[in-house]
Nucleic acid binder design. Structure first.
Lengths: 226, 226
DNA sequence: GATTCAATCAAACGGTTGTTTGAAACATAC
DNA sequence: GTATGTTTCAAACAACCGTTTGATTGAATC
């Protein structure tokens, strides 16, 4: 940050991260080449390897830059709820809203990645790139443990297995929606729903996942009759 | 088909389709090379281009081979339900079961692709390859129209927009589960749930999506307060 | 002003990609 | 047996991939 202010060129590494972030969400990791990234960032081809070491490391770099603020926010939101609940279980709806509010905050703040990063993050969870298989869990350990525990407390009638299934389904829907993957668009010719505003998405998303999570317990052996 | 029967070598084109199907679901489309496919199929490298024209065309060929049986089955299941209902709305649970039963039937029949194809299909819906953007909707037009109409009839209190959102969420969860994408595995160190048996998945999946779809109508303007 | 070190650059690296070629092998029909 | 059309094959194609090199630049340090 200097006196010239906003007209000053950004750091080379930052320009690379910005370009890569946008291209990864647009084309995916494999389909995004180093030359596409450096061309968009207006830096030399060798700059990526110089600053980050490799394309894989750049991919991780794109995440580590944004992840901490998001996880902090999500945990903070949950902290506040649990403090207010004073030991009583927090409702599933409040828990889900706490998580999505963190994502919405990020989505509305370009400095922390904005909607681009929320989409990239969601997409990455769904597509599960091997590159991040090791690095991501470390960042998320606390976040997930906290939310899983809060959800378990709110849904004591569910055993651990069914709870994990339902969380899996719920986050599938959440991440898919935030990733901008309108699945219906794939086979419906003219979909009515096309919005990419995360806030609008969340409006419809919360009732759905809350209802799904709080559904009656699945009868034991219901599906084993074959 | 000749007298030698099962020991006879399969058709070259079929061997290519089988190999590609398995490799696409394992590594994805971009990360699967022609040489991987032809090596696994034990055919010459040029055979793919000779029989299919291009890698993209092969990708489409993998789907067109399996898609018709699946859609027929899914529509048939719905036909049966609607005939039995005699004009009355079919319940959301029955509709969802009709769809998943079709997928389960395919998953248990290796001749129609088995669990491999169900996983590939689900994965493809989620990742949305540009190659299939044009070809897939044609195959699915009738299927989706029928299921959307049946769901709308079962949920008259939902307007078209909210219905489409919820179907989007529901199918996100369904396809993600069938694709074998255990999202929790990405950030939970030691997930309890790891099963890939589609029947077991469906057992937990149905109550979740039914509850989500039949949730109370979202209050108008609930999320627009910003 | 000379030295030092990080940053940038054009160019090339070896390797892989999907695709094409033209000859060889094969089966079928006359 | 010859001709015809289809399928297979090894080899090569140009294009692109991520990465490395070695020279050059620029600013800071002594």
């Amino acid at each position: 940050m200097n006196g010239i202010g906003e007209t000053r060129q950004l750091d080379t590494a930052t320009r690379i991260l910005d370009a890569a972030e946008a291209l990864f969400v647009e084309h995916g990791f494999e389909a995004t080449s180093m030359r596409m990234i450096t061309q968009r960032a207006e830096v030399n081809l060798a700059a990526v390897n110089y600053h980050f070491g490799s394309k894989d490391a750049l991919f991780q770099g794109v995440f580590t830059r944004r992840l901490t603020p998001l996880t902090q926010l999500a945990v903070q939101n949950l902290d506040r709820l649990e403090a207010a609940a004073q030991g009583e279980p927090v409702s599933v709806e409040r828990i889900m809203r706490a998580f999505m509010d963190a994502a919405l905050d990020i989505a509305h703040d370009p400095k922390r990645g904005g909607v681009i990063f929320v989409r990239l993050l969601s997409r990455t969870f769904i597509e599960a790139h091997p590159v991040l298989r090791e690095s991501l869990p470390r960042h998320y350990e606390e976040l997930v443990a906290r939310y899983a525990k809060a959800t378990a407390k709110a849904l004591p009638e569910l055993d651990a297995i069914e709870l994990q299934w339902r969380l899996n389904f719920a986050f599938s829907a959440i991440f898919n929606a935030f990733a901008g993957n309108n699945i219906l668009r794939l086979f419906v010719i003219d979909p009515v729903v096309n919005a990419r505003d995360p806030r609008l998405i969340a409006t419809y998303l919360v009732p759905f996942v809350v209802a799904g999570l709080t559904a009656p317990v699945t009868a034991k052996g219901a599906g084993s009759s074959f």
